[in-house]
Design a protein around this nucleic acid. Structure first.
Lengths: 180, 180
DNA sequence: CGCTTCTTTCACAAACTTGTGAAGTTAAGG
DNA sequence: CCTTAACTTCACAAGTTTGTGAAAGAAGCG
């Protein structure tokens, strides 16, 4: 990826923008969405969920309807549906029904998704389980068994550390951004 | 000379098995390898690299040659080659040339790979970069911009925390397992 | 109630991944 | 030097994954 500084905007633009715009410069938003989504994809998130998620992140309200998502990402309702199902399953978004409309609204929990992402509780638990089995069946006193046991200990350590870390984060966040 | 690896054994364990096993019960090893690999796959690691990595983890010496890997996993040399290239790129294994032979030896750095896995330095750095761009182009004072800024702050926080955490881990590890 | 609007499900085609055999490359050992 | 063992690269076939259009399924609103 080369340096293609195609800025659609000049410094003044941000100031000029006023309440009239439903979302700021769709160009810029889309650029961010695609770039951030690409990074998520590299980290192992399936593509469409990554794009949907990035779009939600970049929305002012932090919520979008299925229709809005389809429109912004230029994909079919079916694709949105699938992506949202995935994201809900891994707790990166939640769905809310808007009372008085059959529209569904998807929301990124600004302050929860990255906690989920970082800790990956379920994933780590399964690793630990597999490692424990390995230690048992290879024998805790064999060189390989010892290696597995150490790895297991590491993940257990991380588990507890992350809990503490998130506590510190919430404190720091308050300090930086004020109370939620 | 292929079979001189994997032999630093304990008396008790050796008694239960027949003395001449090149690796402990290949059945059990293979079962662990496939199960652990499956978990890695679920976490986003490509299949063959995951299997190769698990096989190395479960080897007593912590190293295997390309030929040994191919044999244990029942795959072609080409597959091993590709998998190893991937793993080396993400620093989960390193390759060493055995002097006096054209065999290459792949090693899992018992105490480094999970550090790499956990911190995912490069990945997080790229996320931060994408987020910074996003804050800039959406405007730091817009709601969406603020959300991105907070996410960015979180990752920066995690960066520094993880460094400290790994220091604590090394201490704990020594305490649990003695010096490296 | 039934119309209308929105969402989900399903079968399938296109696009991408993976692993293979075979040919190519490198370097040890005669 | 030439042979040969060991690994790598390449083109391609098999197998997945993805996203779509079409049709069916909810749910407000008249």
């Amino acid at each position: 990826m080369t340096e293609r500084a195609d800025r659609a905007e000049r410094p003044g633009a941000a100031a000029r923008r006023t309440a009239a715009q439903p979302e700021r410069d769709p160009e810029a938003v889309s650029r961010f969405v695609e770039r951030f989504a690409a990074q998520l994809v590299e980290a192992g998130v399936p593509r469409m969920p990554a794009r949907v998620f990035a779009a939600l992140l970049a929305s002012d309200a932090g919520t979008l309807t299925s229709a809005e998502l389809g429109e912004r990402l230029r994909v079919s309702p079916a694709a949105v549906s699938g992506a949202v199902r995935y994201l809900a399953q891994v707790h990166m978004v939640s769905r809310e029904r808007e009372p008085g409309s059959r529209r569904e609204r998807y929301r990124v929990h600004g302050d929860q998704w990255y906690e989920a992402l970082t800790s990956r509780e379920a994933v780590i638990k399964r690793w630990e389980h597999a490692l424990r089995e390995g230690v048992d069946s290879l024998g805790a006193t064999t060189p390989a068994g010892r290696r597995l046991a150490e790895t297991l200990a590491f993940f257990e350590f991380v588990d507890t550390e992350i809990v503490a870390m998130m506590v510190r984060w919430r404190a720091r966040r308050e300090e930086l951004f004020g109370s939620p």
